[in-house]
Design a protein around this nucleic acid. Structure first.
Lengths: 221, 221
DNA sequence: CATAAAATTTAGGTATAACTAAATTTTTGT
DNA sequence: ACAAAAATTTAGTTATACCTAAATTTTATG
């Protein structure tokens, strides 16, 4: 029953998942930008995904796409592969968290279910990848995430970093230098309403962070 | 300078390498059979490989193909990936030697040079894969192999198994049960000239092996 | 509410890498 | 040496997945 999908298809499904995670449908243009593919090509591919049996996406002209149950399963499978691979590259081959993305991006499409099970077991079935992203479970459910963006915190609030949502090497290196990595506890000591800067404390260190950073760091209070 | 090759191209080059290892050129038909691709498709692909710049193969109509220096380098790169991956799947994820081939077959095309270096270093730069196949060096030279097929031995001769040249799951399982794995010492006690059966001893165990097996086991005397 | 801007789709093409059927070339057996 | 068999190539298609240019639809604005 389960058809073998092409790498291209898997990339579309994964990207649609990411764009529709907050509820809305994914627009052709947003997909095109994220995938680095022209908008017309995306339209064509979407039509194919919608016409395939079983349909992988729900699509109406000019209205964007959403995933069907089948499409979502396939997307979560790829995302599980990706995140397990990232964790595993870091844990067993000494990759740093800013180096793993590209490698996982290629490997995620070719590993077997057996391989997936073996690395998951070898790591003791981790629930988050090195960036703190939640790993879909073996039965392909995405766990609930109680985290909120750091940018939503205000003076006096504190919590622990759960996740840094970025695959930008330079940003990740920078954050690591600042100590802004998962598991770190932080306190917000000031909020500047016009530029949305947050002043935070990590241990005895004080940092002022702009929205471009605080919107990518997620916190559990 | 180094162009990124397609998976298909890498598979052709690898297969041509294997078919031309003993010196002769590889025929269209032999390639077609090994790659499970129709002969006309192979002709077409060969022409492309010969026309590419730099040329990856040397080709004259009806005369088969050989690899150019560039083609050979690319083939050895893929073979190095494959064999390092096999070793690594066995050593770190508990795969058995009959399970690794398929997985390595897919992974070999997508791992980075960085990944290659990391697994090689993690294993202490192994020289042979789990079947005993020699791993091309980092500078892409294939080491000389002093081994000869078991089928070439005669009564009284003895040696150590270096390599089992097969990726057939069933055969590999069988050989493992018989103890016919690399590093094992054997003595030939009898040769039957008409059916080419060899009677051998492993420790105190005596086995009679046909040509289909003895031609795939390699020995260092 | 009309029109400009933005988003999207249609139309027509390209490259890669496979396929089958038919033609040709090479090899082999007598 | 020549005909049959085997190997190989040519010719013509197909599927996937991308592209650009142009047309259309939707959304936003004065």
């Amino acid at each position: 029953m389960k058809k073998k999908l092409t790498i291209s298809t898997e990339d579309y499904l994964k990207t649609i998942y990411e764009l529709t995670e907050q509820g809305e449908s994914a627009s052709t243009n947003a997909l095109a930008k994220k995938l680095n593919i022209s908008a017309p090509s995306v339209t064509g591919m979407i039509k194919k995904l919608a016409a395939s049996k079983p349909a992988l996406v729900e699509y109406q002209k000019h209205q964007g796409v959403t995933l069907t149950r089948e499409g979502k399963r396939a997307a979560l499978e790829v995302i599980r592969h990706h995140r397990l691979l990232e964790a595993w590259l870091v844990q067993t081959l000494g990759y740093s968290w800013d180096e793993v993305h590209e490698e996982a991006e290629r490997l995620e499409h070719v590993i077997s279910e057996d391989f997936e099970r073996r690395i998951a077991a070898a790591m003791g079935h981790p629930t988050r990848d090195p960036h703190g992203e939640l790993i879909p479970t073996e039965d392909l459910k995405m766990p609930e995430d109680p985290s909120i963006p750091l940018s939503a915190l205000r003076s006096g609030q504190s919590g622990t970093i759960t996740c840094v949502k970025s695959s930008e090497t330079a940003l990740l290196r920078h954050l690591e230098e600042l100590g802004l990595v998962p598991e770190t506890e932080i306190q917000v000591v000031d909020y500047s309403p016009f530029d949305h800067n947050l002043t935070i404390k990590i241990g005895r260190q004080t940092l002022v962070l702009g929205l471009n950073i605080t919107s990518k760091i997620f916190i559990e209070i």
